[in-house]
Simulated scan of single mutants.
Amino acid sequence: MNTPRLEVRAVSKTFTVKLHKIHALKDVSLDLRKGECHAVVGESGSGKSTLGKVILGLLSPDEGMVLFDGKPVPTRRTLPMKRSIQLVQQNPLSTLNPKRTVSASVIQALKIHHPDLNRAEILVRFEEVMGEVRMPMDLADRYPSELSGGQRQRIAIARALACDPEIIVLDEPTSALDVLVQDQLLRLLSELRQRKQLSYVFITHDLGVVRQLADRVSVFQRGEIVETAPTQDLFDNPQTAYCRELLSSVPVVSEEDLKFISNLHAKT
């Protein structure tokens, strides 16, 4: 078994809202191996996104720690650490500056995280990243508002890839997309992971998406992990009533639906 690239050890986080304490995370531990997709699943408010922010260093835990390659990671991240762990959010407009073109947004990331590259090298790398997310270069001068939702999300992924990360935290990256575009994006993420040996922390409430992409799943309920298992094991034999309840709500896709989606892929 691969040594974990990322470890979350006994992390707790509490917020105070109008004098009431909210336990967003309670003694949470999980790990992520090289090339693995570890899904974090749960209802809204279960602590999934709080965990993602702790991993990224956007929040500091009250207790516990995050380790990268076995070494504790400080909340205040160095530039190399920021480069190593990148974020793709649900809404790409949160990442992309509406006043910057596609090329300006991606090139800015290249300049920040690869200051040793000259202008010619930056342009070459920009073209490579656009190719990796299958975006045509004739969109380079467009603004986010001129792109579709799926195109914007591909540019957000390109911006993350421009940093040459080892880990990407994907926070509900497909939930705002229609079924066909969602499926295309999941296929792209899967291909990128295999080709570049990326590791994903995939935060979602959608177990149908998890089944398509994840190797392992941690299920959250009220800030705690109630079950962690390989994806197929979780679907075949959930150990807790909460997991069984979540699985019962996953839409069943018929053979006709699968054929329809497959035919759409053949035409796109």
Rank of each mutant, 00 (worst) to 15 (best):
G208L: 06
G35E: 09
H205L: 06
F235H: 00
P92G: 06
P251M: 03
S248L: 07
P4W: 02
C243I: 08
L186W: 10
P4Q: 05
A214W: 13
M137C: 10
T204C: 03
Q153M: 05
I261N: 02
I261K: 13
S94T: 15
K71M: 12
A140P: 03
L185K: 05
I107E: 12
L147T: 04
C163E: 11
M137V: 11
V253A: 15
T16N: 13
A156V: 04
D27K: 06
L96W: 08
E172N: 07
E166M: 08
L246T: 04
V73H: 00
L189F: 04
G150Y: 08
N97W: 13
V209Y: 01
S12N: 13
K111F: 06
R142D: 04
Q197C: 13
L32G: 01
P238H: 00
E132W: 10
V169I: 15
K71Q: 11
I85W: 00
D215I: 14
G149E: 14
I107Q: 14
K267Y: 10
A214N: 06
P92L: 04
L246D: 09
V217A: 04
D215E: 07
Q239C: 07
K53S: 08
K53L: 10
M135A: 05
I168P: 01
S190C: 07
H113T: 00
R152Q: 15
G70Q: 08
Y200N: 02
L186P: 12
L87I: 13
K34I: 09
P173K: 03
P238C: 02
P61K: 07
N237P: 00
D178P: 09
E127D: 15
L170F: 08
R33V: 04
H23T: 01
K53N: 10
G208C: 10
S44R: 02
G131F: 07
C243Q: 04
R159W: 04
E172R: 10
L96Y: 12
Y242F: 14
N263C: 11
H114R: 11
E191S: 15
V40I: 12
R216K: 07
M65G: 11
V73R: 00
K267C: 12
K26Y: 11
V250M: 13
V17I: 15
L93V: 13
L32E: 05
D183Q: 08
Q153A: 04
E172K: 05
G45Y: 02
L117M: 04
E7W: 13
N118S: 07
E132I: 08
E132M: 15
D27M: 05
H114T: 09
L207D: 14
V181G: 07
V106G: 09
V54T: 14
T101R: 02
G223V: 03
S148W: 08
A140H: 05
K267A: 13
E255K: 09
E63W: 00
P4G: 08
Q239I: 10
M137H: 13
S262V: 06
G208R: 11
D257I: 14
L19R: 14
A229Y: 01
L123A: 10
R193F: 13
V217F: 01
V124I: 07
A160Y: 09
G223N: 03
V129T: 02
F235C: 00
M81A: 06
E63K: 11
L185F: 07
R134W: 13
A39P: 03
I155N: 01
